[in-house]
């Protein structure tokens, strides 16, 4: 099982995340004669308090995506009524720490839009829906976290 260990940032466990257009959408773009947007490399926080993958809308905009779903989201500020949020299909990869480490690749996953401009330092929250594919060890006393997949 490949794994890597990274230091815990002042804001928490943050790593690089590659977000790209799904294979299914690439097929449709190619058929329509449209260019394939370049994958986006962003900073993402591992957040076990998030149920799913939540990405800032600027990333979807850069990938020229249109929503293919909609869901309801409860945040710390939602109150009694959950927000309604658009969902997009994306492909994601978490690069390994070394070049000979295979990345964690999830070819087609739903990602929910979440405006993260108010929390600088990262553009996505990697929640439990993605972490279900991994083993996460948060070693707070040593200031590192390990992700195995």
């Amino acid at each position: 099982m490949p794994f890597f260990t990274l230091p815990i940032d002042a804001d928490g466990p943050i790593l690089n995340l590659v977000v790209a257009v799904t294979e299914e959408r690439i097929e449709a773009l190619t058929k329509a004669g449209q260019p394939i947007p370049q994958p986006q490399v962003i900073r993402a926080m591992i957040d076990t308090g998030a149920s799913h993958l939540h990405i800032d809308p600027r990333v979807f905009h850069a990938l020229q995506l249109t929503p293919t779903g909609q869901t309801t989201v409860n945040t710390a500020s939602s109150g009694d009524t959950p927000h309604v949020a658009d969902q997009y299909d994306v492909a994601i990869a978490i690069p390994g720490a070394a070049q000979d480490h295979p990345p964690l690749i999830l070819g087609t996953v739903p990602a929910t839009t979440c405006d993260l401009r108010a929390v600088p330092g990262f553009n996505a929250l990697i929640g439990r829906h993605v972490l279900n594919n991994c083993v996460l060890i948060y070693n707070g006393s040593s200031g590192v976290f390990t992700l195995a997949y």
């Binding site: 909609q70 309801t72 500020s77 839009t113």
Partner: peptide, 29 residues
């Protein structure tokens, strides 16, 4: 193709996602 379509998991009771932060999930792209 690139026309709008919806894919949604069928739940008689809508499943709610959670974010334990004070963020806004509603800003349109």
């Amino acid at each position: 193709g690139l026309e709008p379509f919806l894919v949604k998991q069928v739940h008689q009771i809508e499943q709610v996602q959670f974010v334990s932060r004070s963020v806004d999930p509603t800003t349109p792209v």
